[in-house]
Amino acid sequence: MTFLHLVGNEVTKMLRKRRFQVVLIILFAMMAVFAYGEKQASLALARQIGTSNWQAQLQQQISHAENRLHSPFISNAEKAVLQATIKEGQFELAHNINPSAPGAVSFMKSFMDQGITLLVPLLVIVIASDMVSSEMSGGTIKMLLTRGVARWKVLASKLGALFLLIAMLVGAIAVSGYAVSGIFFGYQGWRLPVLMGFQTTSTGYVNLSHVYTVPQWEYLLMSYGLGFFVSLCIGSLSFMVSTLVRSTASGMGIMMAALIGGTLLSVLATNWSIAKYLPVVNLQLSGYLNGSPPPISGMTFPFSLAVLTVWSVAALAVSFIVFIRQDVMG
């Protein structure tokens, strides 16, 4: 008997339960809706502005942002976002880089950039919340723990299976994004240049001195890598909740409430600086790639990585300690 067999068991159970397949179907449906919506939006924009020339469109967006910037009603955080948008747009115009060049690859990029804070974590939660609690509520945990296999090994095999499934999920996001959006935008765009190295502070100061371009495929590798990292972190947190809470439904509820609460917090509580130590506020890792300002001042890329790592490791430690020590009562 090897550890890989145990991981295989867990993956089999997950696939036979069809939970993973349901997640994939949700994913495909959303891809189709988003791609269609984005296509319609770009057509509508072209109609409104009266041209499909991207330079003219971008120029319009910049002047719109500049007008809003002078409004007395917007908050500092909103101001920072606008300033970043303006600077980036001007830079792109000056260097003749079309930020919204259509194509399946650009769609993949914007899907992960947008989805990393909420959508991708939600899908991960659906998978991860079930891992341990379903065995507890189904009673099958008794069989797993009385077969002469150490408890930590049983739990580690579940964790291994979860990480494997998360990798498959991130892969599925990339593949389905490419396949579905290509129908609408065409399957091109791997080599389009993407601007990197904008540094925006939360006060709205944009530093352009380190800006450079990378081909889009390279950007995708980075952003999907970060998406995978965020998914692992959310997966670890859900895994802990799954070992602590016997009911899958309440475990899922707890994680979703935390996630959505964190998203709200990063919009509302920009002045409450302790919030930056919460994992759910640090999920916007792709923001550090494309230069959006961080939700709370003082957050940097290494800081967010560190916060996520510390929380994940702590969550896994709690899971293992509780799982190994607990009495399995009726």
Partner: peptide, 17 residues
């Protein structure tokens, strides 16, 4: 596991042993 066959249920445990 109700969603697995009888054989699969046995296999899951047998592999552990």
């Amino acid at each position: 596991y109700p969603y697995l066959s009888g054989w699969e249920n046995l296999y899951q445990l047998a592999v552990m042993q």
